[in-house]
């Protein structure tokens, strides 16, 4: 007994060490981006990189602003310098630039949030109701319908970018938030239906039958019995759909320009007069990462069960 326990302890330690190594490997890019975003302007392209440096928020200021470079030899007067705010002083010191206006990031960020949240909400609502229907009612040809729904995901999205571009141009959905919301919803509903159907299948029908006998209509039963019990599935689906919509690049790149452009399509254009601004790109990436991270952390207790796609019984 003692020996097997020792063996177990040994295995346990091995697992923990492996997990730590894997976690570190996964965290390196994240660490690198965060690290780069706080490096001062002069250190970013330095090789070999300095390990110890004075952190700076210069990159964050640059990603939020549009600037103009002062012509060579031109210097600001003391009076002008005194008129600068703290952000202006940092920019002047780092890159010898002047802030002209607020950059495009807030607008792009707002687009990303509106589009992703709307697409997620619509997808989850439609997905839950469709999944419930398929799970609980005899739908003629249910198998074929489900396969048809799934088949919409069989083509890689990029293949249909051009037809959709032409279609959107004709009906005027190009460069509109509605266009992307519809597109992301269409792409994700199939996924949502399949995942949620798995979850709803798992809820014993007896709960609903008990509630119906207890004096509730089908719709009330759906709201008061089925929804609370599918929270896990809904949360997991929502996270996946949100991350898909939040990260989507190809469609956003092709279908949007000014009005509806999202962060992923806009972020790569950090080319200034002074060359590609890695610091600003890194700062933008960090800001871009945050919502998906926060959402995932908030819903993590649902995700553990959710990612197993309803395979584990309660």
């Amino acid at each position: 007994m003692a020996e097997s326990r020792r063996e177990k302890g040994w295995k346990h330690h091995l697992i923990v060490v492996t997990l730590i190594v894997i976690t570190i490997i996964y965290m390196i890019p994240l660490f690198y981006i965060v690290n780069t975003s706080f490096r001062p302007w002069k250190d970013i392209k330095q090789y070999p990189p300095k390990l110890i440096y004075q952190p700076s928020i210069g990159s964050y200021i640059r990603i939020f602003t549009a600037r103009s470079v002062l012509a060579p030899g031109v210097e600001l007067s003391d009076e002008e310098k005194a008129g600068l705010n703290w952000a202006g002083r940092i920019v002047l010191r780092d890159t010898n630039e002047r802030i002209t206006r607020l950059g495009d990031l807030p607008k792009r960020y707002l687009n990303s949030i509106i589009i992703s949240v709307s697409a997620t909400l619509i997808t989850v609502i439609m997905g839950t109701m469709t999944a419930y229907g398929f799970s609980r009612f005899k739908v003629p040809g249910a198998g074929n319908w489900l396969f048809f729904i799934l088949s919409t995901r069989m083509l890689p999205p990029v293949v249909v970018v051009i037809p959709i571009f032409l279609m959107y141009r004709t009906i005027g959905l190009n460069d509109s938030r509605l266009g992307l919301i519809l597109l992301y919803t269409a792409f994700n509903v199939s996924f949502a239906v399949w995942v949620l159907k798995g979850f709803i299948d798992e809820i014993p029908r007896e709960y609903e039958e008990a509630a119906m006998v207890d004096g509730y209509t089908r719709w009330e039963v759906f709201r008061k019995v089925v929804l609370p019990q599918s929270v896990t599935g809904i949360a997991a689906t929502a996270v996946f759909v949100f991350i898909f919509s939040w990260n989507e690049y190809a469609f956003s790149f092709l279908l949007t320009r000014k009005t509806a452009q999202t962060v992923p399509a806009w972020l790569p254009y950090q080319m200034g007069v002074l060359g590609y601004d890695w610091g600003a790109a890194a700062a933008g990436s960090v800001l871009f990462l945050l919502p998906a991270m926060i959402l995932t952390i908030l819903l993590r207790k649902h995700l553990v069960r959710g990612i197993s796609f309803g395979a584990i019984r309660k």
Binding site: E209, M212, V213, D214, G215, Y216, T217
Partner: peptide, 8 residues
């Protein structure tokens, strides 16, 4: 079922 007033 809701209208029948039976309990199960």
């Amino acid at each position: 079922p809701a209208e029948r007033n039976v309990a199960m």
